[in-house]
Structures are given as C-alpha cells and as structure tokens.
C-alpha cells in the first residue's frame, strides 16, 4: 500500500512538472494582427553652428588644446512620427542620451496593428525645427497575420529602411 502511495506521489510530481512546463499556452499576438517595430538610434543635429577659431585665439591656447573650430556638444532631440493612413501609431520626441546631451537618441517600439493593407508613413526631424520632417518615407504594404515589420533608419544612406 505504501509503495502504491509512493508511486502515486511521484506520478503527481511528474505530472505537475510536465504540465507547467508547457501549459497553459500564452497568446502573444492577437489573431489577425501583425507587429510593427520601430528600432534605431540616431544622433540629432548639433544645437549650434561650429565657430572657427581665429589664429589669435589659437595662439592663446596650449598646443595640445588647439583645434580648428569650437563646436557645441549638445544635440537636438529627435522627433519621430509613424502613421498608418491618418491614424498615428507613434509620435514622440526623444532626448539625446548622455550627461551632456550629446549622444544618440534611441527608439525601440513594437506596436500591434491589424493585418491587411496599410499606408505607412514614417518621418523624423533631427534639426530642432518645430514642423516638418528632415527624413520621411511612405510605403503601402499588405501585412500578413503575425508579420513582424521592422522600420530602421540607416545612417549610411540617411534614409528609412522598411522590411
């Protein structure tokens, strides 16, 4: 009798291990939905123009401190907007990173959208202008259910990549 009880206890233990190892299943994305991911880091423009040092000013500086121009370190925040048709999916102004606000602004956003046709527009302003975008891209595409669409900004081509 004790042996039966012992076997039963081990069976219960194994059943709990086996069950919780896979069950219940977790629904990650709603049915008929896709994910749009906006992912990149980008440094905004510097907040001011560089000023060239005059020869007189350069002479006053110690030799190891001499440089051709004095540039402000701080950068403008980066404003981003992502729309599907008239619907705004994401709109944010991202501050530059770093103690001196001289680093890149980073964005990582994943948004669930309904699958099907979308007219996507993504725009970015990095020059501190209040309106308009310095970079933008529009695309019409058909998002399959479960699709993971990634939008990046490519620093080399200075344009958006939508994959």
């Amino acid at each position: 009798m004790k042996l039966v009880a012992e076997i039963f206890m081990y069976a219960v233990f194994a059943a709990v291990v086996g069950a919780l190892s896979v069950w219940p299943s977790y629904e990650l994305v709603d049915e008929n939905h896709a994910i749009v991911s906006l992912v990149f880091s980008h440094a905004g423009e510097r907040i001011g123009e560089c000023r060239k040092f005059s020869q007189e000013e350069l002479n006053k500086l110690p030799p190891n401190m001499r440089k051709p121009a004095d540039c402000p370190r701080e950068r403008h925040p980066v404003r981003i907007e992502l729309r599907s048709g008239d619907r705004v999916l994401y709109e944010e102004t991202l501050p530059p990173s770093g103690i001196w606000a001289d680093g890149k602004a980073s964005i990582y956003q994943r948004m669930m959208v309904s699958s099907g046709a979308h007219e996507l527009f993504v725009g970015m302003n990095d020059s501190g202008e209040q309106s308009g975008f310095d970079y933008e891209k529009s695309v019409t595409l058909d998002l399959a259910p479960g699709r993971n669409l990634v939008i990046r900004f490519d620093a080399q081509t200075q344009g958006f990549l939508i994959r």
């Binding site: 919780l20 069950w23 299943s25 990650l28």
Partner: peptide, 28 residues
Amino acid sequence: VLSALYPAISHEQAELAMTPQSLRLDWF
C-alpha cells in the same frame, strides 16, 4: 518516465520576420 511519455519538443524554427501567435511557455 515523464521524458519517455511526454518528450520535450521544439516550436517551429525561429523566423524573425514573423511573430509567433501562441507559445507553450515553461512557466517554471
């Protein structure tokens, strides 16, 4: 016995262009 009766199996191979809809999570 658990391994023989109920072997652990993988999901489909990862495909980063797609997001899986439902997953069998190991809740432990």
